[in-house]
């Protein structure tokens, strides 16, 4: 399983003063010990700073539709591993592997994925490297 670190806002706490800051970035809400596979339809691909999101519509067993928010890394980092702003389009049928939210809500951290044209760029390889 790939090891990840949130670059966009690294929390550096102990050494530093406890000056208040309005911003919070963390991957703490994702359960890194679990990997969940989602199949669904892309509602939106939000190519935004500090991190990119895939909004995915997933059908539940009862036939209802849930919207999942899947968080990726930054646009700059994604571009460096081969992603483009139009890499995922609304309506695309995709399969995503994610670390799910700890609280059970419909969100997760992107690990890898496959779209209409095959595996997405930058998906971790078996040796753990992302390139």
């Amino acid at each position: 399983m790939s090891r990840v670190q949130n670059f966009a806002l690294i929390t550096v706490a102990v050494l530093l003063t406890a000056s208040p800051a309005p911003a919070h970035h963390s991957f703490a809400m994702f359960d890194q010990s679990k990997a969940v596979t989602l199949q669904g339809t892309v509602k939106d691909f939000r190519w935004s700073n500090p991190h990119v999101f895939i909004q995915l519509l997933v059908k539940t067993d009862s036939g209802n539709e849930e919207e999942w928010s899947i968080e990726m890394t930054s646009p700059e980092h994604l571009a460096r591993v081969g992603w483009k702003p139009g890499a995922v389009k609304p309506g695309d049928k995709v399969t995503l592997v994610i670390h799910p939210m700890r609280d059970g809500s419909t969100g997760g951290q992107y690990i890898s994925g496959t779209g209409p044209d095959g595996p997405f760029a930058g998906s971790p390889t078996p040796n753990g490297e992302g390139k």
Partner: peptide
Amino acid sequence: VYEDCEGEERNPVVNGRFTLAPPPSA
């Protein structure tokens, strides 16, 4: 390209735990 922190409030803390707040649709 620019790596920036705009819109960094994506993980508001609720009851001592980080939560997820995706950006609005562009």
